[in-house]
């Protein structure tokens, strides 16, 4: 749990922290598409420079980003290796039946590796600099057109924001119940699989019971404060699109443009 960096927020006051979550979300999605425009070493060099620059802007140390890649490293290396071993074309260095290491293979392996790492780095920038609640607001706002298709976007956004709000409480509660059962002699992570499963019952049952209670309390609290699902609500948390947000999206467009130009050369 502690190792997962993607999806975590690092408080700060950088330029990126102050961007509207919507512009960051759009940029994040756009980046995934942009990355597939790159098909040359020069293009990737440009993307690396760009990404490293953005990472630097976030004010979060480079090491944190590397830690974010670590849980996925085997998957990335596997994909890279597949390219290197099976792709043919150009000069062939090794040829062992189906396994060939070729010039194209090495280059493509490198591209695949870069794409993975760049996408992870860039999305990590988005989540590290945006509060989960702001991300929720941003997603809710961007998906608003789906309301026309009868998708309950506002309800879903509220649900998501309340879940986020209660995650720390749930973690505390889990910790507390685990401590209590350990104090009563439970030893986690010992014995056969069945024994280990058994030790989970005294955790999950109380957790489930208390979550039900909590849910009932919350539902009552929401209802007495006038919450009715399906009615129109205003929002107190305001998103404000600033000139700098437009500017950042413009930079993404420029980036895409440059890559397109490099591509045709």
């Amino acid at each position: 749990m502690n190792k997962l960096i993607l999806g975590r927020y690092f408080p700060g006051d950088s330029w990126l922290h102050r961007l509207d979550p919507r512009s960051k979300l759009i940029a994040g999605v756009a980046f995934i598409f942009i990355i597939f425009l790159a098909d040359s070493l020069q293009a990737f060099a440009l993307l690396w420079v760009f990404t490293l620059f953005v990472m630097r802007l976030s004010g979060v140390g480079f090491r944190t980003y590397v830690r974010g890649v670590r849980p996925l490293i085997w998957l990335i290396l596997f994909a890279t290796l597949m390219q290197m071993l099976f792709r043919t074309g150009g000069a062939t260095f090794v040829d062992w039946g189906p396994i060939t290491i070729s010039e194209y293979g090495i280059i493509n392996g490198f591209y695949v590796f870069c794409r993975f790492v760049l996408i992870i780095f860039f999305s990590t920038v988005v989540t590290l600099t945006t509060k989960p609640i702001d991300l929720t607001d941003g997603i809710g706002s961007l998906l608003r057109p789906l309301r026309k298709l009868k998708v309950p976007v506002d309800e879903l956004a509220l649900m998501l924001s309340i879940s986020l709000r209660f995650i720390p409480n749930l973690m505390d509660e889990t910790q507390r119940i685990m401590d209590a059962q350990r104090a009563r002699g439970t030893q986690f992570g010992e014995g056969s699989l069945i024994q280990q499963m058994k030790t989970l019952v005294p955790i999950f049952l109380p957790l489930f019971a208390s979550s039900l209670n909590r849910a009932e309390d919350m539902a009552n609290a929401m209802e007495v404060r006038g919450y009715q699902s399906g009615t129109k609500r205003s929002t107190f948390r305001q998103l404000s699109w600033k000139r700098i947000d437009t500017a950042s999206l413009f930079i993404m467009v420029v980036l895409a443009g440059v890559l397109l130009v490099v591509r045709t050369i």
Partner: peptide, 12 residues
């Protein structure tokens, strides 16, 4: 604090 007000669809 604003939750109840949002439910009334009050302006910001």
């Amino acid at each position: 604090v604003a939750f109840g007000l949002e439910n009334l669809n009050m302006s910001y």
